[in-house]
Simulated scan of single mutants.
Amino acid sequence: MKSVIITGTSKGIGLDTALAFGRAGYRFFATMRKPENADEFRKKIKDEGLPITISALDVDSDESVGSCIGAIVRENGPVDVLINNAGIEHHGSIEETSMAGFKSVMETNYFGVLRCVKAVLPQMRQDCKGCIINVASVAGKIACTPLGPYSATKFALEAMSEALAQEVKPFNVRVAIVEPGIIDTQMANNIGYGGDSIYPQVNRFGGLFKASLQTPTSAALVADKMLEIAESGTWQLRHPVGPDAEPFLGWRASMNDQEWTDWNAASDEDWYNAVQNTFGFNAREVKQAI
């Protein structure tokens, strides 16, 4: 039975991924910062008889990552698949976001992934087998205010993953980047309006998310993609996921940098009209309803 470690399984994509792999028969190690809050998850594991073990792991901590992954390997043998899913969201304008805010989101979304990769890679390289799946985002390819702090971490994750894939392919270790679009998770629903920001984009962008989430895309879709990557043996690096992921990426690719900057710097009226014409989302109505 192949073994899988995933970070960030308390809710959303991580939780659905744990269940998908467990139901597929993988020996699955679901990690999270606070396992004491996982009573419903434990009940589901017990009721379905799933081969899932819940462990405490804080990706922000060298000691926690080393201790948790080290114990799993000692007690159960080498890890076949590592899924780096743990992440946090921080949005706001560049000027108004504190340095602490920038550092905290980078610590989890980028350095947290590096810690976990470094913990499993020596064994994977030695065994000449393994798969590392890093959950990035469409926001790792497209930078929109007010997601600058979050996008910076996902851009960094994309770059690191691309370099890593080149390094480990000769050792038969696969690297995949999963790029979800707007998925119905707590994180996506938290992207709302920024209150008294001096930058209008910080407020209006929440309308695009809220409008998109009126026809939600389940986190299970991302989970199914990661199971497919693990089982297929694919060497494809990037995997956009969700009905809006590839359209978003294509939309950005259709504009040069100046056009992209101008579109996002446009007046509220022009921006809302462009959103409706491009995506069919009436962000104004959504904003009024919140």
Rank of each mutant, 00 (worst) to 15 (best):
T9G: 04
K11D: 04
L15M: 07
D16N: 15
D16M: 15
G22S: 06
R23N: 03
A24V: 14
G25S: 09
Y26K: 14
F29T: 10
A30N: 04
P35T: 00
A38F: 09
R42E: 15
D47H: 05
I54K: 02
S55F: 13
D58C: 05
V59W: 00
D60C: 10
D62A: 15
V65N: 13
G66F: 15
A71V: 00
I72N: 10
E75S: 12
V81P: 15
I83T: 02
G87E: 00
E89W: 07
E89Q: 13
H90G: 03
G92Y: 02
S93G: 00
E96P: 08
E96F: 00
T97H: 13
M106C: 08
M106I: 06
G112T: 10
V113Y: 11
K118Q: 10
Q123M: 07
G140A: 13
G140D: 07
K141A: 04
G148K: 14
Y150N: 00
E158F: 15
S161M: 06
L164Q: 08
A165L: 15
E167M: 10
P170V: 08
R174P: 01
E179Q: 09
P180C: 07
D184C: 00
T185H: 09
Y193Q: 08
G194S: 05
D196R: 01
S197D: 03
Q201L: 10
V202W: 12
F205Y: 12
G206A: 03
L208M: 15
K210Y: 09
A211I: 12
S212F: 09
L213V: 06
L221E: 08
V222P: 03
D224L: 10
E231K: 09
T234M: 12
V241K: 12
G242F: 04
P247Y: 00
P247Q: 00
F248P: 07
N256A: 02
N256V: 12
S267R: 09
D270A: 15
W271Y: 05
Y272E: 14
N282S: 01
V286R: 02
Q288P: 13
